[in-house]
Amino acid sequence: MPEEAPPEAKKTKKVRGTVVINLARCKGCGFCIAFCPPQVLEFAEDYNPQGYHPPRLTDPDGCTGCDLCGLYCPDFAIYGIMLKNGAPPSAAREKSDES
């Protein structure tokens, strides 16, 4: 009897997006972490030059590149980009028209 694949293996996780963080600008307000839809951000343990804990991407495969963090960030320190089929990050930023 063939074994059923575990549920998580059925989903082929693709890298869909990522975030770009300007560590030096962050003031650690936590907006991006609290309101990230897939919840893939957390406070880093390290401090930035201003003495705050900037965010860190915990699960790069989970990021959808929705750019909601970029909309929330009051310090212009983070933004999300969508990646097409794991394209190199140097690819031009995809403009999202979700609003």
């Binding site: 890298v15 990522t18 770009v20 300007n22 991407l57 790069p60 495969d61 750019d67 970029g70 212009f76 933004y79 980009i81 990646l83 794991g86 190199p88 990050p89 140097s90 930023r93």
Partner: peptide, 19 residues
């Protein structure tokens, strides 16, 4: 897991109108 990617900080859409 994919390797951490790097994109230009200046590509933040707000930078186009920011000093």
């Amino acid at each position: 897991m994919s390797a951490p990617v790097e994109a230009p900080l200046a590509a933040n859409p707000v930078e186009a109108v920011l000093r």
